[in-house]
Every structure is written in C-alpha cells, then in structure tokens.
Design a protein around this nucleic acid. Structure first.
Lengths: 153, 153
DNA sequence: ATTCTGGTTCATTTATTACTGAACTTAATG
DNA sequence: CATTAAGTTCAGTAATAAATGAACCAGAAT
C-alpha cells in the first residue's frame, strides 16, 4: 500500500466517522491529495477500484452536500471533479452545530429534572451555561482569525 | 409517546450519531432525565423495553467509557447507575479532538500536493493555518469560562 | 442511423452492527 | 445445600447500509 493509498483510506475512515459512506470519504481523500482539479469519473473508479455504481452514487452525494464541485472542459465529454475548499473549512462549523444540538438536549433534559433543590439540577445547569458560553464564543474565533490575517502589515 | 419517551429517543439518536449504539444513547437519555441517582438494571430494562443482554452490554460499554457510574446501596444486591456529569462536559472536547484529527489529515494531504506554485496548495495551507489557530484558541475558552465563573464578586 | 462514451439506476449481494433470549455464573439468602 | 436474584455471555437473528454489476439512457461521433 503506497503512502497515498494509506492516506485515502485514512480520509475515508475520518469521513465515515463523520457520517458519510466510506467510499465518499475515499473520493474526498483522493481529491484532497490530487494535484489537479481535473479528476474524472474514471480516475476515481480506477484508483479506488470501485464499481461505476458506487462512484456515481457517492459523487452525487458529495455534490449534493457541496463537498466537491463538478466542472467541464470544452471539447471533452467527461465531467471533472475537485474538492470544494469551503467544505474543508466548514468541518469546525458542523462540529459546532452538533455541540449546539447537544446543548439543546441538555436543556431539554433539565425540564424533566423537576426538584429544584437537587444538586444534579445544579450541575446540569452549570454545564448548560458552559455550552451556551461556547456557542457564543466560537463564532468569534473565526472573526478573530480573519482580522488577524487581513491586517495590513 | 410521552415527552420523556420522546426525549429518550432524541438522546439515543444524538449519541448514535456520536458513534454509540442507539440503546446506549437511550440509557444516557434515561439517566440524564432521571431525577434520582438510583437507577437499577431493571428500571432501565423495563423503561427501555429491551432485553437483559442489550442492557447489560450497553451498561458495560458506557461504564468502560466513563459515561455513567455504578454505585451500590448497602443491604441491597442490585447495582445502581447514574450519568457521569463529566461525560456531558466532555462532548465539546471530543468534538475538538476530531477537528484536530482533521487538521492532521489536511496537513498530510498537503504533502501529496507537490507543486509549490499551485493555488490549491496555497488555499489548503490557509485552511490548515485556520485549524491550527482553532486548536490553540479553543482550550483557552475553557480557561476563560472558569475565570469568569470563579471570580469573586 | 448506428455505434460509442459517460454516466445512472436498481435489484441483488455482502458486510456490519446491534438486539434477543436462553443458558449460564456468581453470590447472597432462607 | 437448595433456591433465588442479579447480571453476563453468546449463538442466532434482524435490521441497516453500502457495494456490485448488469441493464439502461442520453448525447456525441462516425
């Protein structure tokens, strides 16, 4: 297994964890590590040693989620695919979304925990406050980063 | 379906997404929303309408991941379970870990993208820098929160 | 108009994972 | 020491999801 093949598998596994089919993850691995933007259906099929059906289905899944982009070359019937850079930047945002979802779950859980005196309710409230704090702070980080990078030196 | 049953299902789904079996998630949902710390094997089995095998397996899974805690009551053979509050606080940490993992994947991907002039390499590097920034900033948030809450008014 | 190319569709197969339920273990109780 | 109670183990089953591969379709080339 070459280093690149290993890499493609690693990305596949990461994205499987993230909720995509492994093959979709492999496609992303291939496209991230590809030097060119002109990656054809057949390039993917041959490199990933998968069926047409699987490549087709997963390409369209990734297109629908804006994780890859399709483009054409005039005088050529094929379609070409490349990684959508924005999708790489958005991993953090999507993780944050799931933290916020969890925050809402906690808040809901508190509703069932009726007796106000109890120390569990106290603790859950504190954790909830922490998540609310994170929810408000994390978006500020992106702004902070942008400021840092767009400053005129 | 009562509100609480719905809640248990929601938590189950959240944790399934997070990588646990649905039943383990349901157990967490039950324990988060339970008013007491004294939740027995049978409470879980009856409320969740599951087999002994499934309850047993999932309790032990959750114990091994420190997501729940077991305790005893003297004069009683049963074991009792409660949610480990730290596990709720650590959701964010675990999400952050996966962001760092992704950062490493990106860094590795850049190694394959050989030609230095190319604009893709440029863009990937920028995204990588962003993740490095996040990696250093996010732990600071916890500190900031603690300072905010432990301050003497 | 026929062939070829690029890609899609979908029924079937394969793989994975979790749940069930019954037999079993261990330890406490009468 | 026989019984019961609490929980574990594991083989079989069910449910889900994804990959295959062959048939199919649309448009371009000959």
């Amino acid at each position: 297994m070459t280093a690149k093949e290993k890499y493609i598998e690693d990305v596949g596994m990461f994205y499987e964890n993230y909720g995509l089919p492994k093959m979709a993850g492999r496609i992303l691995g291939y496209l991230i590590s590809s030097e060119t933007d002109n990656n054809s259906f057949d390039d993917l099929k041959n490199t990933l040693k998968a069926s047409k059906g699987s490549i087709s289905g997963n390409i369209n899944l990734l297109l629908s989620q804006n994780m890859i982009e399709k483009h054409m070359i005039s005088g050529d019937r094929k379609s070409y695919y490349k990684i959508a850079l924005i999708s790489l930047e958005n991993i953090m945002t999507s993780k944050l979304k799931s933290v916020i979802q969890f925050k809402m779950i906690l808040a809901k859980g508190l509703e069932f925990d009726l007796s106000n005196g109890n120390s569990k309710k106290q603790s859950l409230s504190e954790i909830l406050n922490y998540y609310e704090f994170l929810e408000s702070e994390i978006p500020k980080l992106k702004v902070k980063w942008e400021l840092k990078n767009n400053r005129i030196d």
